[in-house]
Design a protein around this nucleic acid. Sequence first.
DNA 1: CGTTTGATGCTCT
DNA 2: GAGCATCAAACGG
Length: 194
Amino acid sequence: MSQLTRDFFDRDALDVAPELVNKVLVSPVGSGRIVEVEAYRGAEDPASHGHRGPTPRTEVMFGPPGHLYVYFSYGMHWCANVVTGPTGECGAVLIRALEPLTGVEEMYRRRPRARRDRDLCSGPAKLCAALGINDAHGGSDLCRGTDGLAVVDDGTPAPHPPTATTRIGITKAADLPWRFVAPDSVHLSQPVRP
DNA sequence: CGTTTGATGCTCT
DNA sequence: GAGCATCAAACGG
């Protein structure tokens, strides 16, 4: 059970993303195994929030690796990214789905519409609601684990290597295979398209 | 099953 | 004012 280091995140988002699959995201509410992520890069990725340079909203994407980039989506939801790559460059990995592990009771309390476990964290905004992640955690340092947030490797071997597919819910650069999923998981936000 | 639509507010032009 | 890295309910077959 080891916490991921700064060096793990200080690489290209495309290298970090597939290795985050099967790791465990921990919050004070509970934890879940990462089963779906998407990589977003800087200037050359028009779908990235940071592709036109830093703004007040996106500056943490240009900051040091291993911190959390939290954004407010569609006027209702929070979504969480892990910042990747060196300070000054833009990179992030969006956490899109988890398999709930601990704190499941509390997750149901925070997501009253969920009927079964696979409804709790099968989407980027769902998992933030379930784990209590919001703007208060923007910029939080996952490597130091302050705020009780961290990504850990619990040593569980992945049953299958991650599968690369196209990203979801974007209109620009929609053909790039920068979404990585645990292919056998029933907790994905959407099934892998055939 | 599948597709469509309303909710709701921030960000940048 | 347009456009969102979304979710859940409503509707049709």
